[in-house]
């Protein structure tokens, strides 16, 4: 498989799933060309609704559609959709409406548009709500699997997708399961857990670390909530050091979720790599380098953490 943005894989998967299940509908807020639901809307015009630039209303309409037996995907940039947190909190989570919330353009990797368009606090926000799994696929295959799962899942769910292309990381026989992580590369010195955008960079960093005789176990955490406690504790118990890597603020994301489990169950030294402060305009590669999310930055962060 070639590199592909998870938002593009989402749009394609939804088109295919929509042919098989007429309950699937989309609700957009004037960003369907960016969230990649535009093709779905063109193919199934009676099942795609664009409410204009009104995300709260989009989410609420999604809740109502779900309560009437439809399977709505409500889609916008991660920052805009999760920014309507109170509507998600009551109309979706507390109501337990079967809404699939899709936040695209996750992270600083959107680059030039700058901070106001960057969803970097969304995982922390949604993770605080009972009732909503948080899923962030790392490549095209995983995205297709996650979308198919989302349709089957009874209840609300949050999907975090990227604008940028993602190199393939999962093996061809990979099957997504809620609450299950995947070991992409076994190792024994350090557990390197990535998710979404920087996942491929974690694998590249592991190669750099190998050259320095550091064996990194690289894990793809597509499911940030619920996380794979068994795999996490098993790997952390083996390596004794855990590093998390995410294109999200350092507070309350994957790193926060991992810290919660480790400190509760098995205190283990943990280094969180992620976005510090607000994002800013710039080229995506430069931004990743600035925040230590490129292969060299991840490798350097791991080495410093291990004292090597």
């Amino acid at each position: 498989m070639a590199a592909k943005a998870s938002r593009v894989a989402f749009g394609e998967a939804l088109l295919e799933l929509g042919a098989r299940d007429e309950r699937i509908v989309t609700v957009d807020a004037d960003l369907s060309k960016s969230t990649m639901t535009a093709k779905f809307a063109k193919t199934y015009p009676g099942r795609a609704f664009n409410v204009g630039i009104a995300e709260s209303n989009m989410i609420g309409i999604g809740a109502g559609l779900a309560l009437a037996g439809r399977i709505p995907f409500v889609c916008s940039f991660a920052c805009f959709v999760v920014g309507r947190f109170e509507t998600i909190r009551i109309s979706v989570a507390y109501t337990n409406a079967n809404v699939k919330i899709v936040g695209t353009h996750a992270g600083i990797a959107i680059g030039e548009d700058g901070y106001s368009q960057m969803g970097i606090e969304d995982i922390a926000c949604i993770r605080a709500l009972p009732n909503i799994p948080v899923i962030q696929p790392a490549d095209e295959l995983e995205t297709r699997q996650a979308i198919a799962y989302a349709v089957e899942h009874q209840g609300p769910l949050y999907l975090r997708l990227t604008r940028q292309s993602l190199e393939p990381v999962c093996p061809p026989d990979y099957r997504f399961q809620l609450g299950r992580w995947l070991v992409l590369r076994p190792g024994h010195d350090v557990t390197l857990i990535g998710t979404g955008g920087p996942m491929f960079n974690c694998l590249e960093a592991a190669k750099l670390l190998q050259a320095d005789a550091i064996s990194a176990e690289v894990i793809d955490a597509a499911c940030i909530k619920p996380l794979d406690e068994e795999l996490l504790l098993g790997s952390a118990g083996k390596t004794g050091h855990v590093v998390t890597v995410e294109d999200h603020t350092l507070h309350g994301g994957l790193g926060g979720a991992v810290a919660e489990v480790l400190s509760d169950v098995m205190p283990t030294p943990l280094k969180r790599i992620g976005v510090q402060g607000f994002g800013e305009s710039g080229d995506p590669k430069g931004l990743y380098a600035k925040h230590g999310l490129d292969p060299a930055g991840i490798a350097a962060g791991v080495k410093k953490f291990l004292g090597r």
Partner: peptide, 20 residues
């Protein structure tokens, strides 16, 4: 039919229900 009380949300839900 829906959790409400955080004001201003019920009409959107109702639109979705009616449409669904």
């Amino acid at each position: 039919e829906a959790a409400t009380g955080s004001l201003g949300q019920g009409l959107s839900i109702s639109l979705g229900l009616a449409l669904g």
